[in-house]
Design a protein around this nucleic acid. Structure first.
Lengths: 287, 287
DNA sequence: TACCTTCGTGCAAATTATTTTCTTTGATCG
DNA sequence: CGATCAAAGAAAATAATTTGCACGAAGGTA
């Protein structure tokens, strides 16, 4: 549990003075991590004891404990407040991208809907056949990644980024199968159509998408991914990274669920690689 | 610049007492972030002033500044020292994956070879045709991602995960083209073959791979990615995420390099999407 | 060898920061 | 209109941190 999440929760119950402290944290955060309790109190126009009480309220043992927590969270969490990178120098661009990616992971983690994930995992692990759908570059990568992950555990899975195929596959699917669709925007009309068809046929569907979107509305289970998008059009979206991490989470959990089967299949795949390549078994499963 | 990097650099020049402090940071780091200067001094068997001097030496203003820096870096950087996750509970698995991913990004950032990246960007931006190669699930994703990114900037690019095709394409390539190959393991023999052929034909090659590997040796320019791999076979590798971030860095820099062209192409693609879909132009470029 | 310099170190004092305790203020409610 | 209570500050107490100074060891120089 991080400080900012707690702050969010407590927000309503804070007093005037405490709110002023909270504002400083949120707005002039760099100042806050470096300030002493006296400086912070001064800036917020409150007395030091009030700051101590504020820290305790947020679940910290002391002011210094609070500062440590703050510094930890903030390294990742607050960076997205920063404007665009300073320059187009290689180092700056690199730093910007890494920071944004870390931040996307941070936000994903904070907003994960564990219950939805569990439901999704349940379905996937139990499915007789898995169809992974996604189109348009980003989501099609997610779909094929799903295939790439799940087949290793001995599951039957196919991926498609072709709308017509998706519709036909949805029509061919059975209630014991599952259909997983990814849409970053949540407004992929063709995916909605496939999901709607699946619903008519009682085929369960799982959406990896923005909540409150048409795609989410059409799915049986929605695993929501709500992240702010950057606005630099040259910049590939860091959201992809969050989706990929979500995929990792889903597939790891599925793997645990189907473990005996997975172990056998993985071993067999590894064997293939080792015998057909240079015999070094430290090799990854799939280059 | 983070504390641990500085520590690494100064390591040799530290005195006995200072070394004892450094050891505690490295070994019992959780203690160190939470301890007061007195506790830390006590544990290291030195006097508090020595700790203050140690902090100054590492470039911090004061002990509290030092603690903030420490907390910041460590949140990400030290996590990989932790053993496997506590359980298979959804929340723990999620946290473990997110942490590992963040950590992979952190390590990538720290070890980035900016000069190599610049060379690679130069080549890619100037190439008449770009061939992206990678096989085996992970690297084939990287190859198609490269295509997915670069075509948007109006560059001519094709991706292949098929070894025979890769060889044929390498044979067809010209010295004004460039060939980019990804291999997580660095030991993809077929990729080495394609690179070797390219070298004979004077076609420049860029490897995204482990340094000191056969693939790296065969390439004109190597952008090294050296990350430790986890050993949980069920767990998809977080290295993929680092590769993806590296791709983002490369392609952003390429975009800046070919900017006028890129702007036109991106606009055209966006137009397509908007007119053919629901007219909402906040949509991403590619779902 | 004796002397000097430099560096690392700890001690104690001085300074500064933080927490605790006590008190005031002002709001709410019977 | 008092009683009660929460919020917040003042002052005091405590704790943490830094500074100044002195000592001693290591190494260099006459």
């Amino acid at each position: 549990m991080d400080i900012f999440a707690t702050l969010q929760e407590e927000k309503g119950r804070l007093s005037q003075s405490e709110n002023r402290i909270a504002d400083i944290l949120l707005n002039d955060f760099e100042f806050a991590v470096n300030a002493s309790i006296i400086e912070l109190a001064g800036k917020a126009d409150v007395s030091p004891p009030t700051v101590t009480r504020f820290c305790r309220r947020l679940g910290c043992d002391s002011f210094s404990d609070f500062k440590v927590q703050l510094a930890r969270t903030a390294y990742i969490g607050m960076r997205y407040l920063k404007p665009e990178p300073k320059s187009r120098e290689t180092g700056d661009v690199a730093q910007d991208i890494i920071t944004k990616a870390q931040n996307a992971l941070f936000l994903l983690h904070r907003s994960l809907d564990l219950a939805a994930i569990e439901q999704a995992v349940e379905r996937i692990a139990a499915a007789e056949m898995i169809y992974a759908f996604g189109s348009g570059g980003n989501s099609s990568m997610i779909a094929s990644e799903l295939q790439n992950r799940l087949f290793r555990y001995g599951l039957r899975v196919t991926a498609s980024s072709d709308h017509s195929m998706q519709l036909m596959m949805a029509a061919a699917a059975r209630p014991t199968d599952v259909l997983i669709g990814s849409s970053f925007s949540g407004r992929n009309a063709e995916l909605v159509r496939a999901f709607t068809l699946a619903r008519e046929l009682k085929v369960p569907t799982i959406a990896l998408t923005q909540s409150n979107s048409p795609v989410a509305a059409a799915a049986t289970i929605t695993v929501p991914v709500d992240l702010p998008e950057g606005n630099n059009i040259y910049r590939p979206t860091s959201t992809r990274i969050a989706y990929l991490a979500l995929l990792d989470i889903l597939s790891s959990l599925v793997a645990y669920r189907v473990q005996p089967q997975a172990t056998v299949t993985l071993r067999r795949i590894k064997q293939q690689l080792v015998t057909h390549r240079d015999g070094d078994d430290r090799q990854l499963l799939g280059d």
